[in-house]
């Protein structure tokens, strides 16, 4: 059974109400919470799939001391138990193997994304709950405030022409992933008052669709989230189909650096700032 949003928010609020404790040794499996942990000023002892993380998340830099636990979907539990963490932080994506983590240490599971639910409220509450649990409640408040400020800025920077927006990622020369309302980027755009032109996505795996899907919303602002496919910007320049897209032809495309699609509040803030920059640059 999938708990609904209200239950999650109630749970998050409950967690947030508990008194703050010291962080201790942390192991973080979920990337959104890993990013949040670092943003809260705590360096975990271990985290999952750091090779790929380094490829996608350029800042903040992952400290060398953090030990790689292997794939997020299949972390090395033996290694994890040898590291004797005090707390293992997971998200609802990893709840199905919670029992295994509980054999090793106390587990904190916080919701990050739920299919069909706007994610920013969930992420806000989870950020506050994590801050509370690892003894960084003020920093957590600050993170959330920073996001709100960035979104407010974006709201101001947004041109009042009612243009819809689309956040996308280029899978390869011919395919894109679209970020709908239940995704991080879609959530930020909606919060800033954009109409998200992407009707529907299934967040967990964002199946790629053909480039032509973009043409359906010819009027939209296009925010392209990195990384770009092999060949990068040069390949896009030589791609006649891409160049012919109405948004590209009209110069309403903003190439953004690589961001974690499954990131947390800090990524959301960064995205909002980048969009402001992009919108201003035009």
């Amino acid at each position: 059974m999938q708990p609904n949003r209200r239950q999650f928010l109630a749970l998050a609020a409950l967690l947030a109400a508990r008194p703050a404790r010291a962080a201790g040794r942390l192991a973080v499996i979920d990337w959104a919470l890993l990013e949040t942990t670092l943003a809260l000023g705590v360096v975990p002892a271990a985290a999952a799939e750091l090779k790929q993380y380094a490829r996608i998340v350029s800042e903040p830099i992952m400290p060398q001391s953090v030990i790689d636990l292997g794939l997020r979907g299949n972390p090395n539990l033996e290694l994890l138990s040898n590291l004797t963490p005090d707390l293992i932080v997971i998200s609802n994506f990893y709840d199905y193997r919670r029992a295994s983590f509980e054999r090793i240490a106390e587990v904190l599971s916080l919701p990050v994304y739920l299919t069909g639910e706007p994610c920013l409220p969930i992420l806000r509450h989870s950020t506050l709950a994590l801050g509370q649990r690892i003894g960084r409640p003020e920093q957590a408040e600050r993170l959330v405030t920073a996001l709100d400020a960035a979104i407010a800025d974006l709201r101001l920077a947004r041109r009042p022409d009612g243009r819809p927006a689309m956040a996308i990622n280029l899978g390869d020369r011919r395919h894109v992933r679209l970020f709908g309302g239940d995704t991080l980027f879609g959530g930020v755009l909606s919060a800033a008052g954009y109409r998200n032109a992407v009707a529907d996505t299934r967040y967990s795996m964002t199946a790629p669709v053909g480039l032509e899907a973009l043409a359906r919303e010819a009027e939209a602002e296009l925010f392209v989230i990195g990384p770009l496919p092999p060949g990068g910007g040069d390949a896009l320049a030589g791609n006649a189909l891409w160049q012919a897209l109405p948004q590209v032809a009209a110069g309403r495309v903003h190439l953004l650096p690589a961001l974690d699609h499954f990131g947390g509040v800090a990524t959301a803030t960064r995205f909002a700032k980048l969009v402001v920059g992009g919108a201003a640059a035009r």
């Binding site: 043409a215 189909l241 012919a244 109405p246």
Partner: peptide, 18 residues
């Protein structure tokens, strides 16, 4: 296709190049 002018151009190029 929508009413947008750029779109008709895209449709033509899409047919020709995709």
């Amino acid at each position: 296709s929508t009413e947008a002018a750029g779109n008709r151009a895209f449709a033509a190029i899409f047919v020709a190049r995709a």
